[in-house]
Amino acid sequence: MRWLLPHPLVSLGLLVLWLLLNRTYAPGPALVGIIVALMGGWALALLDPGRPRLRRLDVVLKLTLHVLLDIAKSNLAVARNILERKSDRRAGFLRIQLELREPQALAVLACIVTATPGSAWVEFDPEDGQLLLHVLDVGEEADWVRLIKERYEQPLMEIFA
């Protein structure tokens, strides 16, 4: 099975993408889609990006839910920031010490942080794990550290354990 499907999730994603773009579930396009998905998996195995091991599907779901909720909240917060021109708003850089070292997990964390309005991932030092963030409305610095470390980093470490 391993030689046929070295990256089952990637192959499945490619097949779904193929079917969505073709807008049909007829056997002909589906067969071509399966071939494309298999070849995509093999190509990725040749590139060898390292195989992340995903565990704890329940944590994945919980993290996804948290992220969707947080993005909605910060959408509103940033919209208010832009429209109201609050006088006590302080934008600034934050440094946070991360424990996470897995490249794939760091990529996911970077996407989460940047996709959330109000916080942007600026720089990461892979040697000592220092992350430089830019935040639109800093408020209490400890809140940001807690948000990144407990709400995102902790579950990611469980998922990519």
């Binding site: 993005i71 959408n75 940033v78 919209a79 832009i82 934008a91 850089f93 940047t114 996709a115 959330t116 309005p117 109000g118 916080s119 942007a120 600026v122 830019h134 639109l136």
Partner: peptide
């Protein structure tokens, strides 16, 4: 650096 945050409203 503040403006970097703005377009994410549209993209999320």
């Amino acid at each position: 650096y503040e403006r970097v945050h703005a377009p994410t409203l549209g993209t999320s």
